[in-house]
Computed example of a mutant assay.
Amino acid sequence: MGAPDLWIKTLKEKRDEDWDLGELAHTLNSHRPEEKVISYAESHDQALVGDKTLIFRLIDKAMYWHMDKADPDLMVERGIALHKLIRLLTAGLHGGGYLNFMGNEFGHPEWIDFPRQGNNWSFKHARRQWSLRDNGFLKYQWLGEFDAGLMKLIQTVDNPSIHYLTIRQHDHVVSFMRGDLLFIMNFSPDQSWTDYGVPAAAGSYGVILDSDDKQFGGQNRIDNSTRYFTSPQENGHQLQVYLPTRTGIVLQKID
């Protein structure tokens, strides 16, 4: 099963607390080291009429009524948080490249339907509405800003190897290193972790991407000016961080 199908299956069949992070990480990373593969969370198939994009599966009809930034809504908040985590994990474990279908990165609310006899040759849905992301009043901007930050970060990953891959299903936490970047994600719907230790290369680190950042629609629960230092453990070194619920961070090794 490919990654997009597995993400859909997970959203359709499992509660948030039952997501199998081991299966997800294995699927996203299941290729030989010498092979380059393109990773993606969803493709054009989910955007075509008759199917649902990830954001629509997460938020459903609430996205038509509660996407104003001034309108707090728990379903939308959950959907946006998981939408960012899904993309962060998929892109972070990419095997050579990351693919996104236009508009899906900011949660475009409508499907694509090209002119055909069945829709009376209509052009109504043969488009992407970039204005939803750019008008400054809607939550689509948060997803667009996060994607821009993620793409900027992913372009700096030049090391194909993944190290320190750690999956703690009970805690709903996944962490790994790509080069000098440390990815940490907490998928728990109700548990934040204080001083949470994850394996890492010895040194000091600083946060360079935080899905909980206010500019991405987060709650700003992490102090991104903090410098983190590893401590020696019996089997290596670990870094202790604060991990709020449904939050992903990427730290860069400073020295």
Rank of each mutant, 00 (worst) to 15 (best):
residue 1 M to T: 10
residue 7 W to K: 06
residue 8 I to L: 10
residue 12 K to H: 07
residue 14 K to R: 11
residue 16 D to I: 01
residue 17 E to K: 01
residue 19 W to E: 03
residue 22 G to A: 01
residue 27 T to V: 06
residue 30 S to A: 15
residue 30 S to H: 14
residue 32 R to F: 14
residue 40 Y to Q: 10
residue 43 S to E: 00
residue 44 H to Y: 15
residue 46 Q to K: 13
residue 51 D to L: 09
residue 59 I to R: 06
residue 59 I to F: 05
residue 59 I to L: 06
residue 60 D to R: 09
residue 66 H to V: 11
residue 68 D to V: 13
residue 68 D to E: 12
residue 69 K to H: 07
residue 69 K to F: 03
residue 73 D to Q: 05
residue 75 M to P: 03
residue 77 E to C: 06
residue 81 A to Y: 05
residue 81 A to G: 06
residue 90 T to N: 01
residue 92 G to W: 00
residue 103 G to A: 15
residue 111 W to P: 02
residue 115 P to G: 03
residue 117 Q to T: 08
residue 117 Q to F: 09
residue 121 W to N: 05
residue 122 S to C: 03
residue 124 K to D: 07
residue 127 R to I: 08
residue 127 R to V: 06
residue 134 D to Q: 10
residue 138 L to E: 03
residue 138 L to R: 10
residue 139 K to Q: 01
residue 140 Y to T: 07
residue 141 Q to G: 10
residue 143 L to W: 02
residue 144 G to Q: 03
residue 146 F to I: 09
residue 147 D to K: 12
residue 150 L to M: 13
residue 152 K to F: 13
residue 153 L to Y: 13
residue 157 V to I: 14
residue 158 D to C: 15
residue 159 N to G: 04
residue 162 I to N: 06
residue 166 T to C: 11
residue 166 T to N: 12
residue 167 I to C: 01
residue 169 Q to C: 04
residue 171 D to P: 10
residue 172 H to K: 04
residue 176 F to W: 11
residue 176 F to V: 02
residue 182 L to N: 08
residue 186 N to S: 08
residue 188 S to L: 05
residue 189 P to Y: 07
residue 189 P to K: 01
residue 192 S to A: 14
residue 192 S to N: 06
residue 194 T to M: 14
residue 195 D to Q: 13
residue 195 D to E: 14
residue 195 D to R: 14
residue 196 Y to K: 10
residue 204 S to P: 04
residue 204 S to W: 05
residue 210 D to M: 08
residue 212 D to N: 11
residue 215 Q to W: 05
residue 216 F to I: 02
residue 219 Q to R: 15
residue 227 R to I: 15
residue 228 Y to H: 13
residue 231 S to R: 14
residue 232 P to N: 12
residue 234 E to S: 13
residue 237 H to K: 07
residue 240 Q to H: 11
residue 244 P to V: 09
residue 245 T to I: 13
residue 245 T to F: 06
residue 247 T to V: 07
residue 247 T to Q: 02
residue 249 I to S: 02
residue 251 L to Q: 08
